[in-house]
Design a binder for these strands. Structure first.
Lengths: 238, 238
DNA sequence: CTAAAAAGTTGATCCGTGTCAGTTTATTAT
DNA sequence: ATAATAAACTGACACGGATCAACTTTTTAG
């Protein structure tokens, strides 16, 4: 992961309460006016409070969600062990894998902050995919990009030690979710642990290590990355 | 992972030297005769000996490969640490993620046995994707299926202990690659380790544990799963 | 406002795994 | 065939992290 330094400016800071419209993302731009109208007739808007579950793993997947505002986490739950698959900010789609495969959700999704979503009929999406090749191509692109990100996390979680993994997550949150070095963590220490495949206690201890080394500043949920280069070094050395 | 018992019959055994034709897989069935012809004009057949590299991570991805016969491994290599992403038998496509993203290969691929492939011009594939929605939809399906498999391995590698991980791999190889309980491993112990995110020594030790518990029978590369139910139990309990 | 529950924190302990070093067996090449 | 090289194996040891058990702080609910 290589980040451009100039990316970390307060001006770019993402307000998690900002609104995203489907028309902003390339996928929906590929639709004709007629198709857009059809799709909008097959959607409803839903609001979730922080902590509420948007959909459960194993449930019949009759909908695809678009995050209008807020942040959510997708996670797998198997016999009281949780693994967070990804953190999705406003503008993201949830449940795309269910378009193919067996029509069930392969993970649960929960709101990390108050979140608004559009819920689309999955069949409407499927029909568009089978008719509009540019729409389908965008779906391929979205999925492929997620795949590559997953490969990177896969490597991080299986090949790096705890410090490296947590460094990766802070860099990723800073870069891709908040777009600033100074942000309020939208998740608990337990979430941080489930995101990096470690115990909650370990996550807390490493957070403390980073703090004592002057790499970050933490108080409660507020987090400030003081030395991003050092975090990157830790990420690189594992 | 749940397997049908009747799947494990010698009659189903996959001959790794069997031939697969692009026309057999749903993706290429979606093409018109004209499109098929166009695509076939943009492919060449290549042969790789066991151990030879088909493409390197980081290289410019100008081709997508189709495995006609043989077995290959895709793996990430970062600072002398390797992680095998997947094992691909005949009938598989290699390099699909490079259609999107940055046009480079995100992993290397090497032949585990003598392998024949078709090499397609990536732009020919891209053009078809942007014109034929059914072709693009199949690409979405292929990628989504890979994603779900990756989620499962992700969970296995991050949440299970060594015995559970190796059990998963043996079940998977037996079920998805060889389609029999009695097969000749096409990979080294080191590969087995890189597939499960453990050290080679650990892989060897657990192989020995399984052997001593009468779960499998091993001599060299020959492997026979004697108690698949027990392997499944180990997989489930982690 | 207060009780209850959840989240956060810390230290002590223990076990799973990686590492290292050495030996044996199997492959490969000349 | 035989040497060279890689793969497979084994045991000893060390240490990274999980687990457990306490305790504190924050959040939630009545």
């Amino acid at each position: 992961m290589d980040f451009k330094e100039d990316f970390f400016t307060p001006e770019n800071a993402l307000d998690i309460y900002c609104l995203r419209h489907p028309e902003e993302i390339p996928l929906f731009k590929r639709l004709t006016d007629e198709e857009t109208e059809m799709l909008n007739h097959n959607r409803v808007q839903l609001s979730f409070r922080k902590g509420e579950i948007i959909h459960k793993q194993g449930a019949f997947a009759s909908n695809i969600f678009f995050v209008i505002s807020g942040i959510v986490k997708s996670y797998m739950e198997v016999s009281n062990k949780n693994l967070i698959i990804c953190i999705l900010p406003a503008g993201s789609l949830i449940g795309l894998t269910s378009i193919s495969v067996d029509n069930v959700f392969h993970y649960s999704t929960k709101a990390l902050v108050d979140t608004d979503v559009y819920s689309y009929d999955i069949n409407a999406i499927k029909n568009l995919m089978r008719k509009n090749p540019l729409f389908a191509s965008e779906l391929v692109d979205i999925t492929n990009n997620k795949m590559v990100s997953l490969y990177e996390r896969f490597f991080s979680l299986t090949q790096k030690q705890l410090h490296g993994r947590l460094a990766d997550i802070f860099l990723c949150l800073s870069h891709k979710i908040y777009k600033t070095l100074n942000f309020e963590l939208c998740m608990s220490r337990k979430d941080l642990a489930e995101l990096t495949g470690m115990s909650t206690e370990s996550a807390i201890r490493i957070l403390k290590d980073f703090k004592e080394d002057g790499i970050i500043e933490v108080s409660g949920k507020n987090l400030k990355i003081l030395k991003p280069e050092k975090l990157k070094r830790i990420s690189a050395t594992g």
